[in-house]
């Protein structure tokens, strides 16, 4: 008689899935990726604002740093740079968690990569394009962010002059030129995606527009701060004397 393809009563969950494909890890990975991403994204927005306080003058930046390093608790009033070290180490861990879970999204086979390129070429679509750039920036950040964080762990001194020294005299600006756009694009569109992914926002196009505005804004303050540090750095002579506000 006719060959009957029976409706497959297959239990997909029971398929021999390993790693993140395992049903328990699938949900967990998605949640952890989003949670770590949100943490990093929000941190980046704050971070960029803190360091761009230099735009308001060396004093402003000094007080921000002093406050964040717990200056009011220290006898010298300068705070504890070790806080920066500890925090940087913690962020490094978060970045690693985020990277590990985000990596499952990467096209790992040449065929997948080709399919993605073809899709982008033949069926251009904005959100897909945005994701593509998120993926590219994510890949860059995988290398750039740890470099930055290691620097901060090894050399945690922050201040109007100390930071300017790092930027200008230690040539960290080269790192920041790549790091800044990558991290802004990745973080802001990442936050946008988390919102639509979990259904936190219904007005998607308004949100996307907001995200784009935010990217431009963060880029402007980021670049302006970077330029400011370079300008400050050029006026300083080695060895650097840390900035202390004149009372």
């Amino acid at each position: 008689m006719a060959n009957n393809p029976l409706p497959a009563k297959v239990d997909l969950g029971a398929s021999a899935a390993k790693g993140f494909s395992h049903p328990i890890w699938a949900a967990r990975a998605d949640r952890l990726q989003s949670a770590s991403g949100v943490l990093l994204g929000l941190f980046i927005i704050m971070h960029l604002h803190f360091e761009s306080s230099i735009l308001l003058g060396k004093e402003a930046f000094y007080y921000v740093v002093q406050f964040l390093e717990g200056g009011i608790f220290s006898e010298t009033g300068h705070g504890y740079p070790i806080l920066t070290q500890v925090f940087s180490a913690f962020m490094l861990v978060v970045v690693m968690i985020h990277a590990v879970f985000a990596l499952r999204r990467f096209p790992t086979q040449i065929g997948q990569w080709r399919a993605l390129r073809q899709q982008l070429h033949f069926l251009p679509h904005e959100d897909t394009k945005i994701w593509f750039w998120q993926m590219v920036t994510g890949f860059l950040l995988f290398f750039l962010a740890p470099v930055h964080l290691f620097t901060m762990i090894m050399n945690p001194e922050i201040g109007p002059h100390l930071s300017a020294e790092r930027v200008y005299h230690d040539n960290a600006w080269i790192l920041y030129v790549f790091l800044l756009p990558a991290v802004v694009v990745h973080a802001i569109f990442g936050l946008y995606r988390v919102c639509v992914k979990w259904g936190l926002v219904q007005q998607r196009f308004a949100l996307l527009k907001f995200a784009k505005v935010l990217v431009v804004y963060l880029m402007i303050i980021g670049i302006a701060s970077l330029v400011t540090y370079i300008v400050i750095g050029r006026t300083l002579e080695l060895p650097i004397i840390p900035f202390v506000p004149t009372l």
Binding site: A2, N3, N4, P5, L6, P7
Partner: peptide, 14 residues
């Protein structure tokens, strides 16, 4: 049509 075809699929009618 969708309900009836779904029923047919559930019965494994090729």
């Amino acid at each position: 049509l969708y309900a009836v075809d779904n029923k047919a699929i559930s019965l494994g009618i090729p």
